[in-house]
Design a binder for these strands. Structure first.
Length: 428
RNA sequence: GGAAGAGUCGCAUAGUGGUCGAGUGCGCUCGCUUGGAAAGCGAGUUUGGUGCAAGCCAACGCAGGUUCAAAUCCUGUCUCUUCCGCCA
């Protein structure tokens, strides 16, 4: 949610920033008129309330003294009606303002380039594309022949976009998660295991609702979506809502969390033929990092989250690139996003394994999360998040980048301690 | 899932229709006192809206309702506690 005060004081500045990510910039004339109207209505109604409070005190006194208060009571009746009408007008104005502001995305940071996906640019690269002196296999063939993933039975028991990790495949998946968990623990992040079913308020605060309500799996325990629960599409939703409606004491900051959860997404219409196997599914595992901090610190923590994500992929020895997203490619709540993309040879391209973002105060406003500054004033916090990491594109990358001529796959050294002595995955 | 009870300012509580936005205790902050501390004494200690400001207005889980007037009465709802049922 954008700050109405900012729009009031610098509408053109806000428009200029939004133009970096929106094709058509909103016109604020109407919302500012409603805002002025709202404030005038508030002032009128508060004067009426003051009168009512005074009258009420007088009636109490008159009654106490045994005197007649019928004149004051009659006056109170008239005032009460006016206040009720005024309240309705204020509520209408506020609803209008909310409806105008709620769909607007966050303001991109100055360093974020304008435009859509085509303006994304690579800012760093690690490692090199692997070369083979044999014909390499794709990850679906490798995972199947090595008995790591059972796609057919996944489809049988669940349907399309589902798979089953089996045996060493499950162990490899779990090893990755443990490798991430140990890393974050060593960095002093607090481990959170959240519920996977979240309520409407959580979805709204995170910016998923109402716009993206069709992208999540909504349970139908109740026909009213606002009373139903949904499966979290990312642990970010849970981690942001942990402190919804709270004022966090300044000496508790920053709060650094990480969380493991499966992520459940409908991915409606996003299937592409090149996205075979486990590139895109209804459910995938992810460790999410999340930081709450004072506004001044958020650039520093953005860098920290990005470095963490990069270090994790570096530790696996995989070739990857880091991409700065253009304003229009960042999700609506985010002011700046960098993606970490691992190389998948069979796709001749890079796939996202981490997305690191700062929401500045946009999410905090929606979720009402504040702290006190040095002067004791209540101020909005900044929230940042980053995957650390998602596994479902890493396994294809590991299988393909580390494959040998005989169809076996070398396990990255960082995972050896979690794999019960397996250093090379071979066919049975 | 059923029944009963409860939700008030960091914590614990008082408050059943009108000078109650709200008393008290604890905690915390500042001051006095002291060589220093404790004790004691005094002051302060929620959030938001609106206004240039003084100020004013709002909020007693949440949402409605009754009333001239609601922390207080009514309805719904959420959460918690206890008991029962079910259960990994």
């Amino acid at each position: 949610m954008l700050d109405i005060n900012l729009i009031r004081h610098d509408p053109d500045g806000v428009k200029a920033q939004l133009a970096k990510r929106m094709a058509t910039v909103p016109d604020f004339t109407a919302v500012l008129a409603t805002d002025a109207e709202r404030r005038a209505l508030i002032q009128k109604n508060e004067a009426r309330r003051q009168k009512r409070n005074e009258n009420s005190a007088m009636i109490a006194k008159l009654k106490k003294d045994g005197k007649d208060a019928s004149k004051q009571i009659a006056e109170m009746k008239a005032i009460g009606d006016k206040i009720a009408r005024g309240d309705r007008a204020i509520a209408t104005a506020e609803q209008k303002i909310f409806n105008a502001l709620a769909p607007l995305p966050n303001l991109p940071l100055p360093e974020v380039v304008a435009g859509g996906k085509e303006n994304n640019h690579v800012v760093a690269t690690f490692g090199k594309k692997p070369t083979y002196n044999f014909t390499p296999q794709d990850h679906v063939a490798l995972a199947t022949s090595l008995g790591l993933i059972d796609y057919e039975r996944g489809a049988k028991i669940s349907g399309a976009k589902a798979w089953v990790y089996t045996g060493v495949g499950a162990l490899l998946e779990w090893a990755l998660l443990n490798y991430f968990i140990d890393f974050h623990i060593a960095n002093g992040y607090k481990f959170i295991l959240p519920p996977h079913l979240l309520n409407w308020e959580s979805g709204y605060a995170a910016g998923q609702f109402p716009k993206f309500v069709d992208d999540v799996f909504m349970t139908n325990f109740d026909q009213d979506p606002k009373k139903s629960k949904f499966l979290l599409p990312t642990a970010e939703t849970a981690l942001l809502n942990l402190h919804r409606d709270e004022i966090i004491p300044a000496d508790h900051l920053p709060l650094k969390y990480f969380s493991y959860s499966p992520c459940y997404r409908k991915e409606a219409g996003s299937y592409r033929t090149d996205e075979r196997g486990m590139i895109r599914g209804y459910q995938f595992n992810k460790i999410e990092m999340f930081i709450y901090c004072p506004a001044a610190d958020s650039p520093k923590f953005f860098d920290e989250l990005l470095r963490n994500a990069q270090k994790l992929v570096e530790g696996l020895g995989l070739h990857f690139q880091t991409v700065a997203l253009a304003a229009g490619d960042c999700s609506a709540s985010m002011a700046k996003t960098y993606d970490v993309e691992v190389y998948i040879p069979s796709m001749k391209g890079y796939k996202e394994v981490s997305s690191v973002s700062t929401a500045t105060d946009y999410q905090a406003r929606r979720a009402n999360i504040r702290t006190k500054d040095a002067d004791g004033k209540t101020v909005w916090l900044h929230t940042l998040n980053g995957s650390g990491l998602a596994t479902s594109r890493l396994i294809p990358a590991i299988l393909e980048q580390n494959q040998n001529a005989d169809g076996s796959v070398n396990v990255p050294a960082a995972l050896h301690k979690y794999l019960h002595g397996i250093t090379v995955i071979k066919r049975k």
